[in-house]
Design a protein around this nucleic acid. Structure first.
Length: 936
RNA sequence: GGGCGUGUAGCUCAGUUGGUUAGAGCAUGCGCUUGAUAAGCGCAGGGUCGCAGGUUCGAAUCCUGCCACGCCCA
């Protein structure tokens, strides 16, 4: 007879195949229709507020795995905080202005007017905002997607200008002609964060400067070393090291010889590299003694003054440094100290101007002019040596052209006025990982004044007017008036109206002009604490957020720009804690995945590719499984491994659901109760009849483990340690639930009478595990957890729920320890069974008769007489236990008969004459089933 | 070149104040099951814990140096 029909086999419609790629969008649509995000906020209306403030991604390019990691991590925080009982709104944003967009637009169509460039740039930004928004939503990220914050919104732009007004009011803004990083490719000043270093070969030359004052006038020469010959037209001084010894030596070659000053430590390397002979030493002086003398510029009618400076090192060169205050930061400072002129005879495109004083070079790109300068120096016999010099040199991150230092009129924010407060504020912030504190501290400690003006079109205009004489009017009230107009009309107004119209609108005298400079985009995103955090009612009205989380490069970027502006505006940091994550890098090349490299990868790196191939839940599982605090190596291979982890989660949810097919918790659930005096062990009482049933070891153990897992996960979520959540749940699911609990309880679930107490106990435990698992997984597997929740018969989304609370009554550490021992014994049995199998004694373990020898007397005493429970626990038919020796197991073939229904080999098979093939338990069940069938 | 950080099995990661034979999941191999079945279970192989010294009865863990990689700075 076939008894299969009398079993309670698992049954569910929850599909084994996830098919996330088609199913996720359907669920997404339902969530949207229900307004799930709004519902979540409603359920948390009165809960304590937790604000994660979104750092705005740039509105350019597709969402790649790096962006996806960032956004998913944010979502994991927001969702886990929500489920921990907070009201955690998420307002996503985009950084919309800036060079990369303008660059693309200008490249596409040349010769556009500023107004047209801005219109196209906005179009471009909005296009990518839509693309990215779609991709972020598809990843299951919840937030106010219909109403994000955009730095190009009129209201936001107005706040930027108001912030500027405040800076002006506090006397933080000044204008100065100062050397800045200048991109000749993009024709603008660059922020430090926009500069990247790359190798480059330049001519390194030694240049003669004859002394023209002092005793040695006409008799001795200075000699400098430089790798930027094109800056020589701007030379106004030569710096020496005050305390350093300089030796006057006679140098020459091929019959020619002259006297030169050279720093003693560099004499050897200089003469070797310049291939000069040392004919004799004439005198020795210190740098201080040289100071004040003047040398003749090699090709211009100008004197170059000898000065002392700290930045002169003995690393390379001659110990005499060519100083061009218009072309270097150190040079500028030295120039200021000594009252030297600031020359910068280079135009926006990096071409030498007439001011350079060399008509033949006018219009030459500076890096091309190098060769002309060298040739000219050689022809006038001022060149003492030349080499090719490979060095790491700053380049523009956008145009990839080498950067020049160029002095232009720019506006700056005085960092010195903010530095002390900023450093103090840094120590009031929690940095995660903790070394982030040092990172930003060092950056803030050493950063120079903030150059906030840009010669670009796609940005917020610098709200400064110039009087008839061309002097800037730095006036907060005026800037605020501009802000009010911008609030209504947007910043396009600045470009659409002319000077006269602006003067009229603001009541300024005729002849007042304005310029086309825009503000550094780091100001845009840097004031989001004011334009968003403080302004959005749902975010609580304070500019201070609970947490910022971005990639590590933002220590120099957004974390810092936000900090400095916040210090200027409020005197405090805009965040309570800052978390950083590493970059996603290609596993093989170790190359960072970034937008500017997009399209250059051999392998796909777009989030869309992986979402479309595997599903968002897999991408999220990936994000939760990696060590995000470090660099995150990424390959499709390792990504595939996660699909297996996903499957184990899904299959567990499925088998739990399936085993609960005839379980109605209101009707069948048993109660958990402490056992009282016998200890913390839990027992159960059945509802209606009230008889006490003690759960078996495995039930009580799983419940205990569930409490531990719950506690661990809650704590890990609170510490943003998602990897730990992943590991913990993964192991719980694969080992404790799948390999142990589900496997062990199959017999009772399938074969016991439907209402058998131990069957209902098991289902009660499984229901509890399912419930906890779905909640604990919900922030990570947003779609799958919700799907399981729905199949568990819940009418609303799991995302409206809270995390389970660990129940101390159900925790039983003594039992856990005992289980540890039992699992050790289980291992011994497993090995013995394998052995017996290899010898063809048995096929499967149920055919074996196992004798288990237990070394520990007290364990044996506890187990003796509980063979039936142990047979179930070890999934055996025939177990005998003995004590002594060491833990071991022996297996022979059992002599017991196999029950045709439960397939176990039992002593009592055939005890019921009516059912000769069955064990008693199965006979009872079958008879009961038969009766019922007759009745109905 | 300087600062910060990282380096444990093919992959993703655990390794408590130093303490038995360094663990888990996945992957691999070999079996079992066919009543979770495009599933489930078991067993096995796989690591000189980046390298070299040192402290210690004992080091993946503490110290020093080096190597590789990353970020930041020059």
């Amino acid at each position: 007879m076939n008894y299969k029909d009398t079993l309670h086999l698992p049954k569910t419609d929850f599909p084994m195949k996830a098919d996330l790629v088609t199913r996720e969008p359907e669920r997404l649509k339902i969530w949207e229709e229900q307004g799930l995000y709004g519902q979540i906020q409603d359920t948390r209306k009165d809960a304590p507020l937790f604000v994660l403030h979104d750092g705005p991604p740039f509105a350019n390019g597709d969402v790649h795995m790096g962006t996806a990691l960032n956004k998913v991590l944010k979502d994991l925080i927001v969702k886990s905080k929500t489920m921990a009982g907070f009201r955690a709104p998420f307002v996503p944003g985009w950084d919309c202005h800036g060079l990369p967009i303008e660059f693309k637009v200008v490249k596409e169509s040349r010769g556009l007017s500023p107004v047209e460039v801005r219109r196209k740039s906005e179009e471009y930004a909005r296009k990518f905002i839509d693309i990215q928004r779609g991709q972020f939503k598809r990843l299951g990220v919840f937030g106010t997607w219909a109403d994000p914050y955009l730095t190009l919104a009129h209201g936001y732009e107005a706040e930027i200008i108001r912030a500027f007004a405040k800076f002006v009011e506090k006397g933080l803004v000044y204008q100065s002609k100062k050397p800045v990083y200048w991109s000749t490719g993009a024709q603008t000043a660059l922020a430090e964060a926009e500069v990247e270093y790359a190798d480059r070969t330049d001519p390194a030359i030694y240049v003669k400067f004859p002394l023209v004052t002092g005793d040695l006038a006409g008799k001795a020469n200075m000699v400098i070393w430089t790798t930027t010959p094109w800056t020589l037209p701007a030379n106004v001084a030569i710096a020496v090291s005050a305390k350093q010894e300089y030796v006057l030596v006679t140098l020459g070659r091929d019959g020619w010889a002259e006297d030169f000053f050279v720093a003693r430590p560099l004499l050897e390397s200089f003469t070797r590299e310049a291939e000069l002979q040392v004919y004799g030493e004439v005198a020795t002086v210190t740098g201080e003694q040289l100071a004040g003398l003047e040398a003749q510029h090699p090709f211009l009618d100008r004197k170059s003054r000898i000065i002392t400076a700290d930045f002169v090192t003995m690393d390379s060169g001659t110990g005499q440094v060519h100083v061009a205050p218009g072309h270097g930061a150190d040079d500028y400072i030295a120039g200021k100290q000594h009252g030297l002129p600031i020359l910068s005879p280079v135009d926006d495109a990096g071409k030498l101007t007439e001011e350079a004083g060399m008509p033949a070079w006018t219009g030459k790109y500076v890096f091309d002019a190098n060769a002309d300068v060298v040739a000219h120096l050689r022809s006038i016999k001022a060149l003492l040596g030349e080499q090719k010099y490979l060095h790491s040199y700053p380049h523009c991150w956008r145009s990839k052209t080498p950067v020049v230092f160029r002095a232009v009129e720019q506006f700056f924010i005085k960092i010195d006025a903010l530095r002390a407060d900023a450093l103090k504020a840094i120590d009031g912030v929690t940095w995660l990982p903790h070394w982030g504190r040092n990172r930003i501290y060092g950056t803030v400690e050493s950063r120079p004044d903030w150059c906030i003006s840009r010669q670009r079109t796609w940005g917020v205009p610098l709200p400064v007017f110039y009087d008839a004489s061309g002097q800037p009017i730095l006036d907060a009230a005026l800037a605020r008036k501009v802000a009010d107009l911008v609030d209504q009309h947007g910043t396009n107004l600045w470009f659409e109206k002319n000077d006269a119209e602006w003067a009229q609108m603001l009541g300024l005298p005729a002849g007042t002009t304005r310029r086309s400079d825009t503000l550094d985009v780091w100001i845009d995103s840097g004031v989001s604490h004011t334009a968003v955090t403080a302004k959005r009612p749902e975010l609580g009205g304070s500019p201070i957020a609970d947490v910022y989380i971005e990639a590590t490069d933002q220590h120099r970027g957004w974390f810092q720009s936000s900090l400095m502006t916040s210090i200027a505006l409020y005197g405090q940091a805009p965040y309570k804690s800052v978390i950083t994550h590493g970059f996603v890098v290609d596993k093989d090349s170790r190359k960072k995945v970034s937008k500017s490299e997009q399209g250059t990868y051999a392998k796909p790196m777009n989030a869309e590719h992986f979402v479309g191939k595997y599903g968002a839940d897999i991408v999220r599982l990936w994000a939760s499984s990696v060590d995000y605090q470090n660099e995150v190596p990424f390959s499709e291979e390792s990504f595939k491994g996660l699909t297996d982890a996903y499957r184990s989660f899904r299959n567990i949810l499925r088998i739990l659901l399936a085993n609960l097919f005839d379980f109605d918790s209101a009707q069948h659930a048993v109660e958990f109760r402490p056992l009282g005096e016998t200890g913390g062990v839990a027992a159960w009482t059945r509802g209606p009849s009230g008889e006490a049933i003690r759960g078996t070891i495995i039930d009580r153990w799983v419940l205990s483990r569930l409490q531990e897992v719950t506690e661990t996960c809650r704590k890990a979520y609170a510490e943003y340690d998602f990897r730990k959540v992943f590991q913990t749940l993964n192991q719980f699911v694969t080992v404790d639930i799948s390999a142990l609990y589900v496997d062990i309880t199959k017999d009772r679930l399938y074969c016991d009478a439907a209402n058998s107490p131990r069957r209902r106990v098991t289902q009660t435990v499984m229901a509890r595990v399912l419930d906890s698992l779905a909640r604990l997984l919900a922030p990570i597997l947003v779609f799958t957890a919700d799907e399981a929740w729905q199949f568990a018969g819940r009418k609303t989304s799991v995302h409206l729920e809270q995390f389970p609370e660990p129940d101390a009554v159900l925790r039983d550490t003594a039992l856990e320890a005992q289980m540890e021992q039992l699992l050790g014994l289980r291992g011994k049995i497993g090995q013995a069974v394998e052995g017996a199998r290899a010898e063809k004694l048995i096929g499967n373990a149920l055919e074996g008769a196992v004798t288990l020898q237990i070394a520990d007397q007290s364990l044996y005493d506890q187990l003796n007489g509980r063979e039936a429970e142990l047979e179930e626990l070890f999934i055996l038919s025939d177990l005998t236990i003995a004590v002594g020796g060491e833990n071991s197991a022996r297996v022979i073939r059992t002599t017991r008969q196999k029950c045709a229904r439960c397939w176990r080999h039992r002593k009592d098979v055939g005890a019921r004459p009516a059912h000769p093939e069955l064990c008693e338990r199965c006979a009872d069940v079958v008879e009961d089933v038969a009766k019922k069938t007759v009745v109905s």
